[in-house]
Design a protein around this nucleic acid. Structure first.
Lengths: 365, 365
DNA sequence: ATGAAAGCGCTAACAA
DNA sequence: TTGTTAGCGCTTTCAT
């Protein structure tokens, strides 16, 4: 492995005068790493002249511009983003900082990309690698590493910490601890949960259990509250023994489901705080010989792709993830342009995606 | 909202000798952009000492290490990725270069993320913005901008140009013009298309139309060839009027679909060169009042997440996109470690995912 | 119209 | 053990 392949006489050929008798050989492509230095040498001008040409600054003769431009094209030169960002404060690059590239964050990423089209910005998505050590505080760490040099602003996806204060050019999507200092975009978890439970109520269910999420996360709290509010609004008393914590994770969710379904008087429907829990509930029901949806109705939350593939396909509450990315980006661009945000905290509507896992309870008309 | 929880007088306590009467105030947090310079000043040592501490170099007293470390923590300092990469040639960051963040590339991204977990690398995904001007040659441009400084190696997603020669630390995923100079990973498009069409033939269809992809791309050519081969193998004559170009894009695909379905003798099934075209076909069919799958069967290619959510869920040929990203990353890591690739061009198998958009044609037994 | 030189934040010789 | 210094590739005064 050669670190730097022989740059065969590029330096030699510039000799002539301008580029008179120069390029006979294909092109001194080199190892994909042409610097401004090399362009300058090849063109027989100074580095600063090349820089001026590239940035369209005044004070360069048309002739020189043409010549340098040709050399640039021939060499396939492109300014190093890194070197440039070290000098300039403006980079025209937006960053999307994620803990890891999984379904939720990549969906947000698509929304960001949508919103950025035509804005002239480039997009960089960064993940510290998803390794354990980086877990806590990844958002602050990533921000420190990139902000102010590589990127002009950042969209933070599902940050746990929102008290970072990075110059005001940061927007959080679905912050885990709820809107605080940072401008943020989130789905309306409260409304979503109400919608999900109302769907069940409308179907005729009254004994509706819930598998809740991680109690330290705002989204989980709101989803539980939505459940309670929907029941209350329908005049149904919440049976606390029907509320079990699933922590947004597979194993705890399975146990919660088992708890609920092994009772002598199981609920006729279960509302799960996320699709993952709902999917586990489906599995537990199957193990118990229960027929979903006829013996048990299940409604989830999130609408992850897997939900559509479940057996039966899961009825769930959909978050407009992609639109959340778009909206956050719009807010970010506003911030970057120096304007203030009219509404620093946006909440987007959710909706129920009706599939096959919830129907009227046995015996209902 | 506290910016940075008061770490009770740490600054005060170091005072003793080094930075005597200095920080009494909370902390000179500034605007989220702490530099090594500031850490050095705050700690009362030189910049290089701070650098040594951060990089664990020898020649710093345990006491100084402790002190500097504490200051770093207090200020929340994190080395700028940019400044560091300008100096070092090694950055421990892998780049995924894409034309745009759409379903295919984000799926590859997930695979890359999977493969990178635990490798100690960080991941940056970069898109020049998907704007038109950047269209041609985006891969070379992106490579020039990032390679050699920001990233140690790159995974190029669906590049059109593959004659880039960037030091050999580049792997292409699904190169549009087929395997050439660059190591590459691709799905077996020919086999996949045959599988998809054979599925339709097995269902009893014989009037099978096709919406083809961008004719300049190898994948599109192969998918069309697979379609033709499958029909030929089944003894079905290809009706050229049933083959329409959809360019792998929404609008052209819609038109192709309309063309095909508005005929007096429409095909009973359509094989689309990618899911996007298939999804558009579904939409057009719906507009035309056609019942998919009963009036028309549709089979796509790619199996992007959206396909499962379509109405009806799309039967499609699955490319192991995520695994392609994983494989490419494995190859890239091998290259970066200085080893040679045993097989520089990998082809991964495809398979048919049977969902609901294709059934036997009307009148078939 | 052009070039020399300083410096962005950092690391790595080299001095002290 | 510590600090000084020279760049990495680029942009930008400020001479020339």
């Amino acid at each position: 492995m050669t670190l730097h392949p022989p740059r065969d006489g590029v330096g030699g050929r510039i000799a002539a005068s301008t580029d008179a008798g120069a390029p006979v050989l294909p092109v001194p492509y080199l190892q994909g790493r042409v610097t401004m230095q090399q362009v300058a040498a090849e063109a027989g001008v100074s580095i600063s002249t090349v820089s001026k040409v590239i940035n369209g600054r005044y004070g360069v003769s048309a002739e020189t511009v043409g010549h340098v431009t040709r050399v640039i094209d021939r060499l396939g030169y492109e300014a190093s983003l890194v070197a440039r960002s070290l000098r300039n404060h403006r980079t025209n690059v937006i960053g999307v900082l994620v803990m890891d590239f999984e379904p939720f964050s990549t969906e947000v990423l698509k929304g960001v990309a949508d919103a950025i089209h035509g804005s002239g910005y480039e997009l960089i998505a960064y993940s510290a690698g998803g390794h354990v050590e980086a877990h806590v505080g990844w958002e602050r760490r990533s921000l420190s590493r990139l902000m102010g040099s590589l990127i002009d602003g950042a969209v933070l996806v599902t940050p746990t910490v929102t008290d970072v204060q990075a110059d005001g050019r940061v927007v959080a999507v679905d912050p885990h601890t709820g809107p605080s200092g940072l401008p943020s975009v989130a789905a309306d978890n409260l409304q979503g949960a109400r919608l999900g439970v109302e769907h069940l109520l409308a179907l005729g269910h009254t004994r509706i259990g819930m598998i809740t999420g991680r109690s330290d996360l705002l989204s989980a709290q709101q989803r539980e509250q939505g459940y309670r509010e929907a029941l209350a609004a329908a005049g149904v008393q919440v049976d606390e023994s029907l509320v079990r914590c699933g922590d947004f994770e597979a194993e705890p969710a399975r146990e919660a489901a088992r708890d609920l379904l092994a009772r002598s008087d199981p609920p006729t429907a279960i509302f799960a705080a996320n699709d993952l829990s709902a999917l586990e509930t489906l599995a537990v029901a199957a193990e118990l010989g229960l027929d979903v949806p006829h013996d048990l109705s299940v409604v989830g939350f999130d609408n992850i792709p897997e939900s559509a593939l479940a057996d039966p396909p899961l009825t769930t509450v959909q978050q407009p993830i992609r639109r959340m990315g778009e909206e956050a980006t719009r807010m970010l661009l506003t911030l970057i342009s120096g304007d203030d945000l009219a509404r620093p905290h946006r909440t987007l509507d959710t909706s129920v995606v009706v599939r096959a896992s919830a129907v009227a309870p046995r015996g209902a008309r």
